[in-house]
Design a protein around this nucleic acid. Structure first.
Length: 187
DNA sequence: GTCGCGATTTGCT
DNA sequence: GCAAATCGCGACA
């Protein structure tokens, strides 16, 4: 299970909405140092955030944490929210254009050590997989030698992909930019 | 320097 | 169903 092909930076250099949808079924590979093997999680729920989107961190700012969103596609964007949780994103669009896809839910498909993996919810999945800003922010997610990388997976038929409005957004205008796998228990 | 709030989760009523 | 937990960042003084 550790030989899955990593995704290329070109994959992430495209339209954020397209990337968010196409990431469903792909895999997040997390290096487990104790087991000396990868934990494999299938991506089953995502949300898109773009430069012109009022809910995006890059909408009002190009500095601080938002600067990451303008960097090269395929980078990890990990931010701290509500004083206690991290959220994992991957940077999209070409360098100079802001964009990111938030990982909202994962389905564990290979777990080298029997452990509980609560990977439903953006804050919970970071906690379960030990993802922090210190260790993972701005690291390349297309490199298998990194502790965290994204790899190829299965393709869900369009009929199995549900599109809805995003969660937890307080802006007046909201878009149908959330994608998830129909009937998946981890969503 | 201070104030208010957020791409969330949890526990208590 | 609602509020607390708790900190980084933008807005304003």
């Amino acid at each position: 299970m550790t030989q899955l092909l990593p995704l290329s930076p070109e994959f992430f250099a495209q339209n954020t909405l397209w990337v968010a949808k196409r990431l469903l079924g792909k895999h997040l590979m997390v290096w487990d140092a104790d087991a000396h093997d990868h934990i494999v999680c299938r991506i089953v729920e995502t949300e898109a955030y773009t430069q012109n989107d009022p809910a995006c961190h890059a909408h009002k700012s190009t500095t601080g944490r938002a600067a990451t969103l303008y960097k090269e596609p395929g980078l990890a964007y990990v931010y701290f929210i509500y004083g206690m949780y991290y959220c994992l994103n991957v940077v999209t669009e070409p360098t100079g254009t802001a964009g990111a896809v938030l990982f909202r839910a994962l389905e564990p498909v290979y777990n080298p050590t029997p452990r509980e993996l609560k990977t439903h919810g953006p804050g919970r999945l970071c906690k379960a997989l030990n993802i922090t800003k210190d260790r993972h922010n701005e690291r390349l997610l297309t490199d298998p030698s990194q502790p965290l990388y994204l790899a190829d997976g299965i393709t869900y038929p369009d009929a199995q992909i549900i599109t809805t409005t995003r969660i937890g957004i307080s802006q007046a205008q909201e878009y149908p930019w959330r994608f998830y796998v129909d009937q998946n228990p981890w969503v």
